[in-house]
């Protein structure tokens, strides 16, 4: 078992509106989060928002949450926002107990998140 089996990250960029869609599949913990951090390098670009599609993320620990927060800070600095879409129950629990639901707008689906980004 190696990291690639535990987590996979895909990044897709849309121009209108400027948004990066980051699909994280598998499990995020201190062993696998570096993989996400690598994939997030250079994101977001100025004015770009980030939508994390977490519908296939089965686990997220404090280091995974840390990566999401880092992205939020970078996006805020770049004039964009970070949205979370399709958060699974276990990840939602982690977000709730750490009160990060105050930080991230959350959407049931990726489409919902993108619609919100377009409206903004």
């Amino acid at each position: 078992m190696d990291r690639s089996e535990l987590v996979s990250v895909q990044v897709e960029r849309l121009d209108r509106p400027p948004v990066a869609i980051v699909r994280v599949r598998g499990e995020l913990d201190f062993g696998t989060t570096p993989r996400l951090v690598e994939a997030l390098a250079g994101l977001p670009e100025p004015g770009q928002s980030v939508v994390f599609d977490l519908s296939e993320l089965e686990f997220c620990d404090s280091s995974g949450l840390g990566a999401l927060i880092a992205t939020h800070k970078a996006a805020a600095a770049a004039g964009g926002r970070v949205h979370l879409a399709g958060v699974t129950p276990i990840v939602l629990t982690a977000i709730h107990v750490t009160s990060l639901d105050q930080l991230f707008p959350m959407h049931d689906t990726l489409e919902g998140a993108l619609a919100e980004v377009r409206r903004a």
Binding site: S62, S63, G66, A67, A70, K73, A94, V97, T98, L103
Partner: peptide
Amino acid sequence: KAEVHDENHRGLYIVDVL
């Protein structure tokens, strides 16, 4: 105690809550 924007220090906080 992690501030809301803090990227670290959430581990034992999660344990503490759960």
